[in-house]
């Protein structure tokens, strides 16, 4: 399947994913040209800290987007605490406080699915280590729209429930270690 001109990378992760994401962002090319949209499960009462820690090592600018903020190439967006993060058709984000799904707000399924409807086959969806099944439905939407689906190799996961839940719903296009994921992203033209 020919799928040039990707428009976005969207990543979901939970337990154990913070260090994986930190490391990945420190290894991504400085001139990486796509927006990287990340939804991680996080503690509700702890608003600050996560984005600051991720910023420390990242090669790209990391932002917790506001509602209606325009999605810009080469920037990293982290779903803010206690909001769901959606991608809209006009290339902006929207936020929502509707009830948690899969026990989480932000919910990974919401971010992945909304991105799938907007970017269709021009996106890359990645699910990392995590202890629940959030993200599986979203990855199925990406799969159905023809986008690239990548799961973190369960052997390299702190908790492998999340990528395995994806693999139960669809056959992911790639199963990769974090290093291999970075390698794959860095070689995208």
């Amino acid at each position: 399947m020919l799928r040039a001109n990707y428009k976005a990378v969207v990543i979901g992760g939970s337990a154990g994913s913070f260090s994986v994401v930190s490391k990945m962002l420190s290894q991504l090319r400085k001139d990486f040209h796509l927006p990287v949209i990340i939804c991680l499960h996080r503690l509700k009462h702890v608003r600050s800290g996560l984005v600051e820690s991720i910023r420390l090592k990242s090669n790209l600018e990391v932002i917790e987007p506001n509602d209606k903020e325009k999605i810009v190439n080469g920037k990293v967006y982290l779903a803010p605490s206690n909001y769901h993060l959606f991608v809209e058709y006009d290339g902006t984000f929207s936020l929502s406080t509707e009830k948690p799904c899969n026990h989480s707000r932000p919910c990974i399924d919401h971010t992945l699915s909304s991105a799938a409807y907007v970017y269709r086959n021009k996106m890359i969806g990645i699910v990392l280590t995590g202890a629940n099944k959030d993200g599986a439905k979203g990855m199925k939407d990406i799969f159905d729209k023809g986008g690239v689906t990548i799961i973190q190799d369960p052997k390299t996961c702190e908790v492998d429930t999340m990528p395995k839940s994806v693999a139960r719903l669809i056959k992911p296009e790639k199963t990769l270690s974090p290093d291999q994921i970075v390698e794959y992203l860095n070689q995208l033209a």
Binding site: R47, P65, D67, P80, N82, L95, T97
Partner: peptide, 8 residues
């Protein structure tokens, strides 16, 4: 306004 709202 809310924490992640910005007036435009």
């Amino acid at each position: 306004l809310g924490n992640h709202e910005s007036m435009t």
